[in-house]
Design a protein around this nucleic acid. Structure first.
Lengths: 175, 175
DNA sequence: CTATTTGCAAATAATTTGCCCATGG
DNA sequence: CCATGGGCAAATTATTTGCAAATAG
């Protein structure tokens, strides 16, 4: 960790962009800082809603967007079609579970993954950085596979209830 | 391309799993085979709907899922909150545009990106493969930035129309 | 024939927007 | 104060599901 703590970096970034440091922005950034599990916006919402009474998901989405613009947060490429935020802005790599879509940082610092950049000029592409996604099976799913069949994870946002189909078979009258 | 063409691989996979080779499955797989741009399900739908009158998005989603299960298709990690399908099943790498989320294959075959796998045993993770995502700016966005401010791409699925807010300011009567 | 698939519409999930009050600097 | 942000509800977009008709093998 450099001289400036992450929190100080965050405040500096706000000031540099002329954006007010609001309670919501601070709390959401705090809640994110230490996590290496790349939560979805809804998981971030769950994490902050108790200490920030009355926050809305809307605000979480908006703040996350702002933090990305400020450069203190990134979005990870996700194997699911759901946004995943990443508090690390420096180059690092990921482990992706093919069964449950868990997404965590690679911890092994021993391997220096310095990669030669491809020539993408023909494609008109200017490469700025890269990230390696290692795919495989996480601990939980390996255990599980000895008992149950591999199960997909629960939806990000708890399902409300099963509210009885409206179009009854009879009501259709053949249709 | 090996002895078996991709189409033959596909049919073999269906037979191996005891699944019927339907028109929809064949057409959708055909439409995908040659693309290196990792379309969203909706883009796949647009691509096939003219030659497959009456297909529904539901079917496209279901068929894509089936093709992934059959192992003839993969899902790419996506920087957006939208599914992206990938007809290449062998190891390969990607270019990701940070501005418009364009996602294309790396074409430069000269660079052999053989990467040393990290030790993820502490994390209980078994690594099977990997893919490198090179992030940067695509040709279109580079040109654009000289004129307009960088613009987000259009939504995957064309917006119907702007249907006048229902709760009129007056109707709320303060609220 | 019979299991599977498809199409439809509706349900569910994920994200964004409009409007107006609240708040930071 | 005054610009910007935040809360709320509704709109939009993305994906899934139940059911009956269609179809591959």
């Amino acid at each position: 960790m450099p001289i400036l703590s992450r929190m100080q970096q965050f405040e500096a970034a706000c000031r540099a962009h002329g954006l007010p440091v609001t309670v919501q922005r601070r709390r959401i950034f705090e809640a994110l800082c230490d996590r290496t599990d790349h939560p979805t916006p809804d998981q971030v919402y769950s994490a902050v809603k108790d200490t920030l009474p009355g926050v809305s998901r809307t605000t979480v989405y908006r703040v996350l967007d702002t933090l990305v613009r400020l450069g203190v947060l990134t979005k990870a490429c996700s194997p699911t079609a759901t946004t995943r935020v990443d508090p690390r802005t420096a180059r690092h790599h990921h482990l992706v579970c093919q069964r449950c879509d868990r997404l965590v940082d690679v911890e092994d610092a021993a391997v220096d993954h310095r990669v030669r950049l491809p020539d993408a000029r023909r494609q008109g592409f200017t490469i700025a950085d890269y990230s390696i996604y290692f795919t495989g099976v996480c601990a939980a799913c390996q255990e599980e596979s000895t008992t149950h069949p591999p199960s997909r994870p629960a939806p990000q946002r708890a399902r409300k209830r099963k509210p009885a189909r409206s179009r009854s078979p009879a009501a259709r009258a053949r249709g």
